[in-house]
Nucleic acid binder design. Sequence first.
DNA 1: ACTCTACATCGACAACTGTCGATGCAGCGA
DNA 2: TCGCTGCATCGACAGTTGTCGATGTAGAGT
Lengths: 104, 104
Amino acid sequence: MDADRATGVALQFKALGDPGRLRLLSLIAAHESGQACVCDLTEPLGLSQPTVSHHLKVLREAGLVAGERRGTWVYYRLIPGALTALAATLNAGLSSPHGSTVPA
Amino acid sequence: MDADRATGVALQFKALGDPGRLRLLSLIAAHESGQACVCDLTEPLGLSQPTVSHHLKVLREAGLVAGERRGTWVYYRLIPGALTALAATLNAGLSSPHGSTVPA
DNA sequence: ACTCTACATCGACAACTGTCGATGCAGCGA
DNA sequence: TCGCTGCATCGACAGTTGTCGATGTAGAGT
């Protein structure tokens, strides 16, 4: 794995390297229809709303989630291939890329 | 995913969240017989020896690599199921564990 | 015993990160 | 227009992280 690709992939793993963000992803994935607004996520995490918003920004910039405004609420959902692409990288022994890794 | 498990998994992902450590794992995996001593890793990474040693320690404490002293050298190798276990967690949508995640 | 090499640890430092309260902004309803 | 709610951003702060040079430690060879 070359340095450039390592930097991009590391950015995504770093986004996964926080318990709050992992639970955030887990909560979104477990939600019905695969999306959740921020107000659904703040309480079960036990973190303040600004902190949750910050974590969601990190996940967004890593290309792991996407948010869509619908009225007053912003609904977040997982980006389909992102997690499985990372999983494929792990299973490949961190060698070479197969396709795009949806960096950001 | 509960908070305890999130903390453990996050620790492993955090270990993967650095370009140097990713390249380190990649270099070890690519080495013949799957092991490499530190002196083989320092130069291709472009980092100082203490820094490489520090990164290896992080990877060790995350349960991703193991080092074995053989004479003057210390040979590092990937821990067999560690990366694939993480990959399985990603593919499961970060929901529930299947087996042990080999935390540390 | 001495020295050399390979690796780990220490001490220090700048940079980054997670967290929160306060504030700003956008959309909705009265 | 006014106020309310949901979310993002700001400013600040403590804690963590990546990095290096200097130093310590362990094994091998002379």
